[in-house]
């Protein structure tokens, strides 16, 4: 565990806490894509199929539980909690799941380390995580009034990915034979998807104006 990885995980955790804060205290999920949240829940379910039979550390185990629990509870809130559900921008959140899920599944079946169910699901989760933010980015672009918490949520998610890239660079130079092409390429694609958002986020922050993405 290096400092980049830890900072990345903590940033990821913070993004989820920011979102839960918005949902739980303000009882609003305005500007948040349920599609993206459901895709993240699917990412964690398919990635952590090994949670009970492959033990790497107590840290990993607890973080897996937290990611699974929080992502499922966010989906539950957005679907089942009356007040939260009312604030959901359903008509704007139109991205189709199948455009994301099917290509990722096919790719995982073709490009993987081992053709076993768990390994293919794990690889699928990497590909899916890379593009799961797309419905959220589309929704952001359609939202005229992006509130601070939503902006911070997406910013923290992007920062988490950038820190993971640094973690891989660090591990490449410090751990002999550390090469993970599938993880790296999926991670790089995922980080690049945030580039545009980052640009406007930092611009709005520097100029102290409200965040708005150009159509």
């Amino acid at each position: 565990m290096n400092v980049f990885r830890l900072a990345g995980d903590m940033t990821h955790l913070s993004s989820i806490l920011v979102l839960l804060l918005k949902i739980h205290t303000i009882k609003s999920c305005a500007g948040i894509s349920l599609k993206t949240q459901e895709l993240y829940a699917l990412v964690f379910i398919t990635r952590y199929l090994d949670i009970f039979d492959r033990f790497t550390s107590i840290y990993n185990f607890l973080m897996k539980l937290i990611f699974l629990g929080s992502s499922l509870s966010i989906v539950w809130y957005m679907r089942r909690h009356k007040a939260v559900h009312r604030s959901y921008d359903k008509d704007q959140d139109t991205f189709r799941y199948q455009f994301i899920v099917l290509p990722c599944l096919l790719l995982a079946l073709v490009i993987n380390h081992k053709l076993t169910f768990k390994e293919v699901m794990w690889t699928f989760s990497l590909y899916l995580e890379a593009v799961a933010i797309l419905p959220q980015l589309v929704l952001l672009q359609r939202t005229r009034n992006i509130d601070n918490l939503t902006g911070q949520y997406v910013f923290l998610l992007g920062a988490y990915r950038a820190l993971y890239l640094l973690n891989w660079v660090y591990r490449y130079f410090t751990e002999p034979g550390f090469v993970r092409w599938i993880t790296w390429i999926a991670g790089l694609v995922q980080t690049l998807l945030y580039a545009d958002f980052f640009y406007y986020y930092i611009l709005s922050w520097k100029n102290n104006v409200k965040l708005e993405l150009p159509a």
């Binding site: 990885r5 995980d9 990821h12 090994d50 492959r54 790497t56 990993n60 973080m63 897996k64 990611f67 380390h113 081992k114 794990w122 993971y164 973690n167 993970r180 993880t183």
Partner: peptide, 10 residues
Amino acid sequence: SPEEKRHDEL
């Protein structure tokens, strides 16, 4: 094993 190592991140 390399497979175990592959799964050491979140």
